[in-house]
Nucleic acid binder design. Structure first.
Lengths: 228, 228
DNA sequence: CGCTCCGTTGAAACGGTTCAACCCACGTGG
DNA sequence: CCACGTGGGTTGAACCGTTTCAACGGAGCG
């Protein structure tokens, strides 16, 4: 598959003309990573940004003792690492390949040249960054103002919302990673899942979660987590 | 003072020509708020964004029980509320006047028209959003991966860094609000300040903090907060 | 003067983490 | 093909940092 074909399928670039896409494909570099491999590290110089082509990319922070807080999981078509490209500063977090993945890399200067000639691309980029800020604000809200049951309930409701409010959702990553996304540890997650099951709020069968009492779950999400 | 004069002093607009500033001043609205007054609320439709002219603006989240988590304090020249302007979605947080303040308000559509004609303005805006993402990522890191002493140490070091690493820093807001910024409560903040004083790391005299043992403070910030 | 707001202090309660042990499914190599 | 190791998940018990509630002190202000 050629770079130009990848670019055609990226939402961020959908407003571009064929000519503009060509100039982009001229500057993009295709890179592949195996599961778990580092893409960049906190403190690295950010000389460009990335877009996921296939697989998923995990962006996270690390504590001094090695505990990890996931900031975001990016899937195909989503850009990441733009923060340092536009601010000119170092990467503020780590990025690993969550699955075997491939990405397009856009060197900073070349991309800035393209964007200068295309207002619609910069508007699209502004929209992307704005949505990301919203996601991070929601994360702060969860971490600071809700307890773990509330965060977990919120997470399940989000997963369900993505699939037309289906009562049955498939976890898209391991429970250990979900714990890391929710700012806790696997043990705590396991216990809370257990409590929710006992209360008849949901059933947990491996990677499959069946929501039995949606209003109950919504209340836990709203109230911040008092498992009454 | 006229709107055009305010605009001239805003860093975000410094690359603009006089003509472009005029067109901006044509769309901007000057608004004043008294201390504590609401500017917008979470869930409000975002029809535009703001830039602080004078005073400060507090942007924060609220828990169901009324506890507040400050996301950011904005001072003169800084834009806020752009997230919903560019994403087209509702405001994701609350904004209050922290002091008696005045702001410029830019309606969404008019501003988008201006930005479309000026690549440098959109690049400046991308840089602003990127820096903001970095701040929020750091906040997540603090909240999730560090304990309160570590967050406080980090905060003091930031304050000090802003003034050429001065050993003596003036708190720019009430201790209660600092607690809210650090994701804790005033009581905890008070106790930790006390412990740090006892350990000879700093002296706390009202709004003035004197750093006595900078390496010690740096270690607390790094290690996440074990007050050994 | 008395009110309110902010900060401080103490004691008790709580939610979450840590550490350790254990289980199971899975894949690998002998 | 079975033994073994590994990684993910679960469970129990002790521990710990932080919150909560209540009380109190001081500064500022009408």
């Amino acid at each position: 598959v050629r770079v130009i074909d990848h670019i055609a399928s990226i939402p961020l670039f959908e407003t571009l003309s064929g000519k503009q896409r060509e100039s982009l494909s001229g500057i993009a570099v295709h890179r592949s990573y195996t599961k778990g491999q580092a893409i960049f590290s906190e403190g690295d110089r950010g000389e460009g940004f990335y877009i996921v082509v296939s697989g998923r990319v995990k962006v996270f922070k690390l504590s001094s003792e090695g505990r990890e807080q996931i900031l975001h999981i990016f899937g195909p078509g989503e850009p990441f690492g733009e923060v340092s490209a536009f601010s000119g500063l170092d990467f503020p977090a780590y990025a690993d390949a969550y699955d075997d993945s491939s990405v397009l890399y856009f060197p900073r200067d070349a991309f800035l040249r393209v964007i200068k000639n295309d207002p619609s691309l910069s508007l699209a980029m502004l929209a992307v960054l704005s949505k990301r800020l919203r996601v991070l604000a929601a994360l702060v809200d969860n971490l600071s103002l809700k307890e773990v049951p509330g965060r977990l309930a919120t997470y399940f409701l989000q997963l369900s919302a993505r699939e037309n409010d289906a009562a049955e959702v498939e976890l898209d990553m391991s429970k250990g990673n979900i714990a890391s996304l929710l700012g806790t540890v696997p043990e705590t997650l396991s216990r809370i899942l257990n409590r929710m099951s006992k209360r008849g709020i949901l059933r947990s069968e491996g990677q499959r979660i069946i929501i039995l009492d949606r209003p109950g779950l919504e209340e836990i999400a709203r109230e911040g987590g008092k498992l009454s």
